[in-house]
Simulated scan of single mutants.
Amino acid sequence: MSEQSGAHLPTSAYFDAISPGHYRPTEAAGGAWNSDEIHFSPLGGLIVHAIDLHRAAAEGGVNGKELGRISFDILGFLAATDCEIRVETIRPGRTIELIEATVIIAGRPAVLARAWFIATTDTSGVAGGQPAPLPSPDRSAPWSMVDIWPGGYIASLDFRSVAPPLPGKASAWLRTEKALVAGEPSSPHAMFIALVDTANGIAVRQSPLDWAYPNLDLTIHFHRQPTGNWVGLDTTVTFGPAGHGLTSSVLHDEDGPVGRAEQILTVRPLS
């Protein structure tokens, strides 16, 4: 089962399973903008975990396809309370497969997600075009993000800065020792995606005490499946002149680049 290879089972978690498809966030999932909300990063990983469970149950195991793209639309406030994740296959197929997931919080849809899975074939002879890899985590300096952002999720992470961050530009590694769901192993791509939304917080263009710039979405494309515990983010944040912004990241594991992530922002002053 290649999609579950490398799955691990840490002793603490971001969510507890209540019943099939129903989850309760722990303090470790606490948001950065508001202490009463879930940080989207671990919730995004949980959605992928639920998609993996759905595919395994529907197809009796791995079917030779890998995750190529996942998009999340965040519809509103992610209250730190019980959530339900409903998953369905909306486009089955032998070479491509589209899965849709809806997160229900407080009786309302809170997140819509769609994931494309793509059949694998050997293209190693023509592979190329990737950006340069980041320096390894071992060559990067410890970085305390709790000086910038509050919340249980940020406090749960181990950060390493590749170089001193600049306004709107940063490269960093991060990892966590926590599981997505207590007592359940998760796939490497679910654990990787559980950290990607952090990108919007590492390349601070303006102080979050003075400006709000939450993301409305997260879209991730993979050209290679991620492995290992470290997530590398080479991130740039752009603010436009009319309240819109964009966080763009090249995603890395320790073997090099694996894909890209984009997040659209709503930018507004806090006073």
Score class of each variant (00 low, 15 high):
Val87Cys: 07
Gly30Pro: 11
Arg108Phe: 04
Thr235Arg: 00
Arg94Asp: 10
Ile96Met: 15
Leu265Glu: 09
Ala50Gly: 09
His22Cys: 08
Gly228Ala: 01
Arg91Ala: 11
Ala7Met: 00
Glu254Val: 05
Ile104His: 09
Arg114Asn: 14
Leu75Pro: 10
Ser140Asp: 01
Lys169Gly: 05
Gly129Met: 02
Leu157Val: 07
Leu98Ala: 09
His252Thr: 00
Gly183Leu: 05
Thr95Tyr: 04
Arg139Met: 05
Ile104Gly: 08
Val111Thr: 08
Phe72Ile: 04
Glu3Asn: 15
His189Ile: 14
Arg260Phe: 06
Glu254Trp: 01
Pro131Trp: 08
Ala57Glu: 15
Ser187Thr: 15
Glu27Trp: 08
Ser248Gln: 12
Phe239Lys: 11
Leu174Ser: 06
His252Asn: 01
Gly6Cys: 07
Ala155Gln: 09
Asn34Tyr: 12
Asp82Leu: 05
Thr26Glu: 07
Thr198Gln: 05
Pro167Asn: 10
Ala28Pro: 00
Ser171Phe: 05
Ser71Glu: 10
Gly152Trp: 09
Leu270Gln: 10
Gly243Asn: 10
Ile18Gln: 00
Leu180Tyr: 03
Pro208Asn: 09
Ala13Lys: 02
Pro269Thr: 12
Pro188Lys: 02
Ile99Met: 13
Thr176Tyr: 09
Asp234Lys: 08
Met145Asn: 08
Ser249Ala: 02
Gly259Glu: 07
Phe15Thr: 06
His252Ser: 01
Gly44Val: 07
Trp143Val: 05
Glu184Asp: 09
Phe40Ile: 08
Phe192Val: 01
Tyr14Val: 09
Arg175Ser: 00
Tyr153Phe: 15
Leu46Asp: 10
Pro214Lys: 06
Trp143Gly: 00
Pro133His: 03
Leu112Ile: 15
Ile118Asp: 11
